[in-house]
Computed example of a mutant assay.
Amino acid sequence: MDSDIETLVLSRDGRSLLLLGCWNQDAPGGGSYAIRGYVGGAVEDLDIDASTGAWIDNFRVVLGDSSGTIKRVDFSKSPPSVSVIGRLQGAVKSVDISPSGDRLVALTDQRKSGSESVAAPVAVIVSLKTNEHAYISLPEGASAAFWRGDQKIILEAGNHWIIVDTGTAKVIERRLRPASPAPGNTREETRCNLAGSASVYVIGWCLKSGQLVKLDENGGMSVIANIPTKDSFASVSVASDLVR
Protein backbone atom coordinates (compact mmCIF):
# COMPACT_ATOMS: atom_id res chain seq x y z
CA MET A 1 0.00 0.00 0.00
CA ASP A 2 1.54 3.28 -0.98
CA SER A 3 -1.30 5.79 -0.79
CA ASP A 4 -2.80 7.68 2.13
CA ILE A 5 -6.42 7.23 1.10
CA GLU A 6 -7.15 3.71 2.36
CA THR A 7 -10.74 3.08 3.43
CA LEU A 8 -11.59 0.37 5.96
CA VAL A 9 -14.99 -1.39 5.90
CA LEU A 10 -16.11 -3.91 8.54
CA SER A 11 -18.97 -6.36 8.09
CA ARG A 12 -21.94 -6.09 10.45
CA ASP A 13 -20.60 -8.82 12.74
CA GLY A 14 -16.98 -7.67 12.49
CA ARG A 15 -15.70 -10.97 11.09
CA SER A 16 -14.88 -9.66 7.61
CA LEU A 17 -12.74 -6.66 6.77
CA LEU A 18 -12.36 -4.81 3.49
CA LEU A 19 -9.54 -2.40 2.71
CA LEU A 20 -9.89 -0.11 -0.33
CA GLY A 21 -7.00 1.95 -1.65
CA CYS A 22 -4.48 2.56 -4.41
CA TRP A 23 -1.22 0.94 -5.41
CA ASN A 24 1.52 2.68 -7.42
CA GLN A 25 -0.68 5.77 -7.23
CA ASP A 26 1.74 8.05 -9.07
CA ALA A 27 3.17 5.50 -11.48
CA PRO A 28 1.96 4.61 -14.99
CA GLY A 29 -0.26 1.57 -14.83
CA GLY A 30 -1.13 2.11 -11.18
CA GLY A 31 -4.63 1.29 -10.05
CA SER A 32 -7.02 0.56 -7.22
CA TYR A 33 -7.29 -2.51 -5.06
CA ALA A 34 -9.61 -4.21 -2.62
CA ILE A 35 -8.19 -6.49 0.08
CA ARG A 36 -10.55 -8.76 1.93
CA GLY A 37 -9.74 -10.49 5.21
CA TYR A 38 -11.87 -12.93 7.22
CA VAL A 39 -11.45 -14.09 10.81
CA GLY A 40 -9.91 -17.56 10.60
CA GLY A 41 -9.62 -17.34 6.82
CA ALA A 42 -7.15 -16.30 4.16
CA VAL A 43 -6.53 -12.74 2.98
CA GLU A 44 -7.54 -12.11 -0.63
CA ASP A 45 -6.80 -9.17 -2.91
CA LEU A 46 -8.44 -7.90 -6.07
CA ASP A 47 -7.49 -5.21 -8.58
CA ILE A 48 -10.70 -3.21 -8.94
CA ASP A 49 -11.76 0.43 -9.05
CA ALA A 50 -13.59 1.25 -5.82
CA SER A 51 -13.79 4.20 -3.44
CA THR A 52 -16.51 2.98 -1.08
CA GLY A 53 -18.06 -0.33 -0.10
CA ALA A 54 -20.43 -2.23 2.18
CA TRP A 55 -20.84 -5.90 3.10
CA ILE A 56 -23.92 -7.92 2.15
CA ASP A 57 -22.66 -10.82 4.30
CA ASN A 58 -19.21 -12.12 5.24
CA PHE A 59 -18.37 -13.13 1.68
CA ARG A 60 -20.20 -10.71 -0.62
CA VAL A 61 -19.57 -6.98 -0.86
CA VAL A 62 -20.94 -4.07 -2.88
CA LEU A 63 -18.45 -1.50 -4.21
CA GLY A 64 -18.96 1.96 -5.69
CA ASP A 65 -16.45 4.00 -7.69
CA SER A 66 -15.88 7.52 -8.97
CA SER A 67 -17.42 6.71 -12.37
CA GLY A 68 -20.78 5.90 -10.75
CA THR A 69 -20.51 2.13 -11.24
CA ILE A 70 -21.80 -0.18 -8.50
CA LYS A 71 -20.39 -3.72 -8.48
CA ARG A 72 -21.08 -6.84 -6.45
CA VAL A 73 -18.06 -9.00 -5.55
CA ASP A 74 -18.38 -12.56 -4.26
CA PHE A 75 -15.22 -13.60 -2.39
CA SER A 76 -16.58 -17.11 -1.76
CA LYS A 77 -15.62 -17.96 -5.34
CA SER A 78 -12.08 -18.42 -6.65
CA PRO A 79 -11.23 -16.14 -8.25
CA PRO A 80 -13.76 -13.67 -6.77
CA SER A 81 -16.66 -13.03 -9.16
CA VAL A 82 -17.53 -9.45 -10.09
CA SER A 83 -20.84 -8.25 -11.58
CA VAL A 84 -22.19 -4.76 -12.31
CA ILE A 85 -25.53 -4.02 -10.65
CA GLY A 86 -25.89 -0.32 -11.45
CA ARG A 87 -24.45 2.70 -13.25
CA LEU A 88 -25.22 6.13 -11.77
CA GLN A 89 -24.72 9.58 -13.28
CA GLY A 90 -22.24 10.76 -10.68
CA ALA A 91 -19.52 9.36 -8.43
CA VAL A 92 -20.68 7.02 -5.67
CA LYS A 93 -19.99 8.83 -2.38
CA SER A 94 -21.18 6.09 -0.03
CA VAL A 95 -23.06 2.79 -0.03
CA ASP A 96 -24.81 0.85 2.71
CA ILE A 97 -26.74 -2.44 2.81
CA SER A 98 -30.10 -2.80 4.58
CA PRO A 99 -30.17 -5.13 7.64
CA SER A 100 -32.18 -7.68 5.63
CA GLY A 101 -29.43 -7.67 2.99
CA ASP A 102 -31.77 -7.22 0.03
CA ARG A 103 -31.43 -3.47 -0.69
CA LEU A 104 -28.63 -0.94 -0.90
CA VAL A 105 -28.59 2.82 -0.64
CA ALA A 106 -26.01 4.70 -2.71
CA LEU A 107 -25.33 8.40 -2.32
CA THR A 108 -24.41 10.34 -5.47
CA ASP A 109 -24.83 13.69 -7.21
CA GLN A 110 -27.21 13.81 -10.16
CA ARG A 111 -27.49 16.59 -12.72
CA LYS A 112 -30.68 18.60 -12.44
CA SER A 113 -33.11 18.49 -15.33
CA GLY A 114 -32.09 20.94 -18.07
CA SER A 115 -28.66 21.60 -16.55
CA GLU A 116 -25.30 20.23 -17.63
CA SER A 117 -23.36 21.67 -14.68
CA VAL A 118 -25.63 21.89 -11.62
CA ALA A 119 -25.86 18.64 -9.66
CA ALA A 120 -27.85 17.78 -6.55
CA PRO A 121 -27.40 14.94 -4.05
CA VAL A 122 -29.57 11.87 -4.56
CA ALA A 123 -30.04 8.63 -2.64
CA VAL A 124 -30.46 5.67 -4.98
CA ILE A 125 -32.25 2.66 -3.50
CA VAL A 126 -31.38 -0.53 -5.39
CA SER A 127 -33.06 -3.91 -4.91
CA LEU A 128 -30.42 -6.64 -4.94
CA LYS A 129 -33.13 -9.13 -5.94
CA THR A 130 -34.79 -7.32 -8.86
CA ASN A 131 -32.19 -4.59 -9.62
CA GLU A 132 -35.01 -2.04 -9.46
CA HIS A 133 -33.81 1.54 -8.79
CA ALA A 134 -35.64 4.28 -6.88
CA TYR A 135 -34.37 7.86 -6.51
CA ILE A 136 -34.81 10.20 -3.53
CA SER A 137 -33.75 13.86 -3.75
CA LEU A 138 -31.70 14.94 -0.74
CA PRO A 139 -30.78 18.26 0.92
CA GLU A 140 -27.67 20.07 -0.27
CA GLY A 141 -24.46 18.91 1.35
CA ALA A 142 -25.54 15.32 1.96
CA SER A 143 -22.33 13.36 2.53
CA ALA A 144 -23.20 9.96 4.04
CA ALA A 145 -26.23 7.68 4.22
CA PHE A 146 -26.96 4.58 6.34
CA TRP A 147 -30.00 2.36 6.84
CA ARG A 148 -32.21 2.73 9.94
CA GLY A 149 -33.97 -0.62 9.78
CA ASP A 150 -35.21 -1.73 6.36
CA GLN A 151 -37.46 1.24 5.54
CA LYS A 152 -35.59 4.38 6.64
CA ILE A 153 -32.20 5.92 5.97
CA ILE A 154 -30.27 8.44 8.02
CA LEU A 155 -27.94 10.90 6.33
CA GLU A 156 -25.65 13.76 7.19
CA ALA A 157 -26.26 17.15 5.58
CA GLY A 158 -24.51 20.24 6.90
CA ASN A 159 -24.90 20.44 10.67
CA HIS A 160 -27.83 18.01 10.77
CA TRP A 161 -28.58 14.31 10.72
CA ILE A 162 -31.77 13.66 8.75
CA ILE A 163 -33.97 10.55 8.69
CA VAL A 164 -35.86 9.83 5.46
CA ASP A 165 -38.66 7.31 4.91
CA THR A 166 -37.71 5.45 1.71
CA GLY A 167 -41.34 4.54 1.01
CA THR A 168 -42.62 8.12 0.94
CA ALA A 169 -39.27 9.85 0.21
CA LYS A 170 -40.16 12.31 2.99
CA VAL A 171 -37.96 13.69 5.78
CA ILE A 172 -39.47 12.43 9.04
CA GLU A 173 -36.85 13.67 11.51
CA ARG A 174 -34.09 16.26 11.62
CA ARG A 175 -31.63 16.54 14.48
CA LEU A 176 -28.56 18.67 15.11
CA ARG A 177 -25.30 16.77 14.83
CA PRO A 178 -24.00 15.96 18.32
CA ALA A 179 -21.04 17.85 19.70
CA SER A 180 -18.00 16.63 21.59
CA PRO A 181 -15.52 18.73 23.64
CA ALA A 182 -12.37 19.60 21.72
CA PRO A 183 -9.15 18.35 23.37
CA GLY A 184 -7.45 20.85 25.66
CA ASN A 185 -10.41 23.22 25.64
CA THR A 186 -13.60 21.97 27.28
CA ARG A 187 -15.43 25.18 26.34
CA GLU A 188 -15.06 24.48 22.64
CA GLU A 189 -17.24 21.81 21.04
CA THR A 190 -16.92 20.21 17.62
CA ARG A 191 -19.63 18.44 15.65
CA CYS A 192 -19.42 14.66 15.21
CA ASN A 193 -19.69 12.98 11.82
CA LEU A 194 -22.23 10.26 11.02
CA ALA A 195 -20.36 6.93 11.12
CA GLY A 196 -23.07 4.27 11.06
CA SER A 197 -26.39 2.98 12.29
CA ALA A 198 -26.90 0.06 14.66
CA SER A 199 -30.18 -1.32 16.03
CA VAL A 200 -31.65 1.55 18.08
CA TYR A 201 -28.43 3.57 17.99
CA VAL A 202 -26.83 6.04 15.63
CA ILE A 203 -23.01 6.04 15.58
CA GLY A 204 -20.97 9.24 15.51
CA TRP A 205 -17.23 9.81 14.99
CA CYS A 206 -15.91 12.90 16.78
CA LEU A 207 -12.53 13.29 15.08
CA LYS A 208 -11.02 16.14 17.09
CA SER A 209 -11.79 14.56 20.46
CA GLY A 210 -11.10 11.03 19.20
CA GLN A 211 -14.42 9.76 20.53
CA LEU A 212 -16.61 7.12 18.90
CA VAL A 213 -20.10 7.65 20.32
CA LYS A 214 -23.58 6.14 20.14
CA LEU A 215 -26.85 8.05 20.43
CA ASP A 216 -30.15 6.48 21.43
CA GLU A 217 -33.57 7.42 20.07
CA ASN A 218 -33.95 10.10 22.77
CA GLY A 219 -30.64 11.75 21.90
CA GLY A 220 -28.74 10.36 24.87
CA MET A 221 -25.05 10.03 24.02
CA SER A 222 -22.43 7.66 25.43
CA VAL A 223 -18.84 6.94 24.43
CA ILE A 224 -18.10 3.58 22.78
CA ALA A 225 -14.34 4.10 22.51
CA ASN A 226 -11.63 6.74 22.69
CA ILE A 227 -9.38 6.69 19.62
CA PRO A 228 -6.97 9.63 19.84
CA THR A 229 -5.50 10.62 16.47
CA LYS A 230 -3.67 13.55 14.91
CA ASP A 231 -4.66 12.44 11.40
CA SER A 232 -7.16 14.99 10.10
CA PHE A 233 -8.35 12.45 7.48
CA ALA A 234 -8.86 9.55 9.89
CA SER A 235 -12.08 7.57 9.47
CA VAL A 236 -13.73 4.67 11.25
CA SER A 237 -15.85 1.66 10.38
CA VAL A 238 -18.27 0.07 12.84
CA ALA A 239 -19.41 -3.55 13.15
CA SER A 240 -22.99 -2.45 13.77
CA ASP A 241 -24.31 -5.78 15.12
CA LEU A 242 -21.83 -5.56 18.01
CA VAL A 243 -23.04 -2.18 19.26
CA ARG A 244 -25.24 -2.73 22.29
Score class of each variant (00 low, 15 high):
residue 221 M to A: 03
residue 70 I to Y: 07
residue 192 C to S: 13
residue 191 R to A: 13
residue 111 R to F: 10
residue 59 F to S: 12
residue 54 A to E: 02
residue 142 A to V: 12
residue 144 A to T: 07
residue 212 L to S: 10
residue 141 G to C: 08
residue 66 S to Q: 09
residue 84 V to E: 12
residue 146 F to P: 00
residue 18 L to R: 01
residue 182 A to Q: 09
residue 44 E to W: 05
residue 197 S to A: 15
residue 157 A to L: 01
residue 152 K to V: 06
residue 146 F to W: 09
residue 200 V to T: 14
residue 147 W to F: 15
residue 216 D to E: 10
residue 10 L to K: 00
residue 134 A to M: 11
residue 182 A to M: 09
residue 116 E to C: 11
residue 82 V to L: 01
residue 34 A to Y: 07
residue 57 D to F: 05
residue 19 L to S: 06
residue 214 K to C: 02
residue 240 S to L: 00
residue 10 L to V: 00
residue 137 S to C: 05
residue 106 A to E: 07
residue 157 A to N: 06
residue 213 V to N: 03
residue 46 L to F: 02
residue 5 I to L: 05
residue 58 N to V: 01
residue 139 P to R: 03
residue 156 E to C: 06
residue 138 L to I: 12
residue 229 T to S: 15
residue 49 D to T: 08
residue 19 L to T: 06
residue 120 A to Q: 13
residue 194 L to W: 09
residue 26 D to Y: 13
residue 125 I to H: 09
residue 16 S to V: 02
residue 151 Q to E: 14
residue 106 A to I: 06
residue 68 G to M: 06
residue 35 I to W: 05
residue 115 S to V: 06
residue 146 F to A: 01
residue 83 S to H: 04
residue 166 T to M: 14
residue 95 V to W: 03
residue 38 Y to M: 13
residue 20 L to T: 06
residue 195 A to W: 05
residue 160 H to L: 09
residue 192 C to G: 14
residue 84 V to I: 09
residue 14 G to S: 00
residue 223 V to Q: 08
residue 76 S to Q: 06
residue 48 I to L: 15
residue 32 S to G: 13
residue 228 P to Y: 07
residue 162 I to G: 13
residue 30 G to V: 05
residue 217 E to G: 11
residue 100 S to Y: 01
residue 161 W to N: 12
residue 169 A to R: 15
residue 68 G to L: 04
residue 205 W to C: 03
residue 121 P to R: 11
residue 37 G to M: 12
residue 65 D to Q: 08
residue 95 V to H: 01
residue 88 L to K: 04
residue 168 T to Q: 12
residue 164 V to C: 10
residue 171 V to H: 07
residue 63 L to S: 04
residue 45 D to V: 02
residue 133 H to A: 07
residue 8 L to T: 10
residue 59 F to N: 12
residue 156 E to N: 09
residue 36 R to F: 14
residue 23 W to Y: 15
residue 215 L to R: 14
residue 55 W to E: 01
residue 164 V to K: 11
residue 201 Y to Q: 02
residue 102 D to L: 12
residue 154 I to M: 11
residue 47 D to G: 11
residue 57 D to G: 01
residue 63 L to T: 01
residue 98 S to G: 07
residue 104 L to Q: 02
residue 86 G to K: 06
residue 213 V to P: 01
residue 154 I to Q: 09
residue 56 I to V: 15
residue 40 G to M: 08
residue 3 S to R: 00
residue 184 G to F: 10
residue 203 I to R: 04
residue 231 D to V: 11
residue 99 P to K: 06
residue 156 E to V: 03
residue 59 F to G: 05
residue 33 Y to D: 08
residue 188 E to V: 14
residue 89 Q to P: 00
residue 49 D to F: 08
residue 223 V to N: 04
residue 35 I to M: 09
residue 179 A to L: 14
residue 8 L to P: 00
residue 180 S to Q: 08
residue 221 M to T: 12
residue 239 A to T: 06
residue 35 I to P: 00
residue 123 A to R: 10
residue 168 T to L: 08
residue 150 D to F: 13
residue 44 E to I: 11
residue 60 R to Y: 01
residue 69 T to D: 07
residue 105 V to N: 02
residue 177 R to T: 14
residue 121 P to A: 12
residue 115 S to H: 11
residue 82 V to Y: 03
